[in-house]
């Protein structure tokens, strides 16, 4: 059987855009989560700036030469900064989520 035929039989459909937006709208962020989101946005821009500041050698033909023929945007550095900032912000986002869960449990216990 063709690879694409196998995939066509098994593949899962993408979620609707409206369901994603509805889920995001329903979720309420607390202080820690907002801090994490803002920090990630700043790190996102920082990654782009660093990629531009530290360019890499662009042409494959002069990759091992003494002088590089053309410099290009450092894509790998940008991805690296994004990945590290994502892990850092995810940590703070998780702390905020735990605090949210604890406050909701406290509220429910208080009502009883």
């Amino acid at each position: 059987m063709n690879l694409f035929e196998e995939i066509d039989q098994v593949k899962k459909e993408l979620p609707k855009f409206k369901t994603i937006t509805k889920k995001v709208e329903k979720y309420s962020f607390n202080g820690y989560q907002r801090f994490a989101i803002v920090t990630y946005c700043i790190c996102f821009c920082l990654g782009i700036i660093l990629g531009n500041l530290f360019p890499a050698c662009g042409s494959s033909s002069s990759l091992y030469a003494v002088e590089c023929m053309s410099r290009e945007f450092n894509f790998s550095l940008m991805i690296f900064v994004w990945f590290i900032s994502f892990l850092f912000c995810l940590f703070f986002f998780a702390i905020g989520h735990i605090i949210l869960l604890l406050t909701s449990i406290n509220d429910k216990l208080g009502k009883r």
């Binding site: 098994v10 593949k11 993408l14 360019p55 053309s70 410099r71 290009e72 945007f73 940008m78 991805i79």
Partner: peptide, 26 residues
């Protein structure tokens, strides 16, 4: 497969943007 394709499209979008920035750089 569809989710992987979204990842691939995003990757090549970033590559397109970086190649555009490279045009301005050199």
């Amino acid at each position: 497969f569809n989710y992987l394709n979204v990842f691939l499209i995003l990757l090549y979008f970033l590559i397109m943007v970086t190649s555009l920035l490279t045009v301005f750089q050199s």
